[in-house]
Design a binder for these strands. Structure first.
Lengths: 119, 119
DNA sequence: TACTATGCTACACTTAGTGTAGGTCAACGA
DNA sequence: TCGTTGACCTACACTAAGTGTAGCATAGTA
């Protein structure tokens, strides 16, 4: 079992964020030791890694919660979960395209600057 | 001169956001007509378009404000402005790479689902 | 024994807006 | 002339997704 600090370090996430996710229901209330410190399994650590991934793709905590609830409902929700991940994948693709467009915009700006223009 | 509603529509931005940017100093206090309604020039509209672009690249309002202040200081700050835009461009490139990595993660997840795995 | 590290809760604060209440004003139709 | 849109105004409350802080407990170490 891992402490919250170990998990935070391993996942690359803030301790406060882990407690925040627990409050939001993305994580079951953690097991505790005699000192009331949270303890985590390898499995919970992996789920946190995936939470982090989903957050970085731009999925909201609320939507991750919805996904998590489906996981807990069992295999019958597999199609719905696939749909959620596919949708998120599409959003991510769109986001990447949008960022590329902004990149072009920045490059144009830089070019104007390089040519000595002042705006 | 354009009203705030016209600008919002043209730029594709919320009216409230424009007023918010004014409060934050990203925009000079707008000119007003006799009814105290804000009026904007073409030039201000273009600056708002660029604000929007910078925001979409992930630049904070605070950093845009810093950039704006440099613009107002005149041509002597051109090298600093170029640096700010170049840095933002690099952040954007890093961000795009990070998103691509998350995409791979999502695709792996989907593959596992397609193979009938439940997690 | 004293100090340091790590954890706990609860609460305040942050960013970048969005939404709402309550008000003004001009234009338009009946 | 009245009434009612529609667009605007300010001020304030609220949101998401955390982060930071205060004040505490406890365990291991010098």
């Amino acid at each position: 079992m891992l402490t919250i600090g170990e998990v935070a370090k391993e996942v690359g996430i803030n301790i406060g964020a882990i407690r925040f996710y627990e409050r939001k229901g993305l994580l079951e209330p953690a097991a505790r030791n005699e000192q009331n410190n949270r303890l985590y399994t390898e499995h919970e650590l992996k789920w946190l890694v995936f939470i982090k991934c989903l957050r970085e793709t731009g999925m909201s905590v609320e939507d991750i919660k919805r996904y998590y609830d489906k996981v807990n409902e069992g295999t019958s929700t597999l199609p719905e979960r696939i749909k959620l991940i596919q949708d998120q994948k599409q959003k991510l693709l769109d986001d990447i395209e949008a960022k590329k467009a902004q990149l072009v915009h920045l490059e144009h700006k830089l070019e104007r600057y390089y040519r000595g223009e002042n705006y």
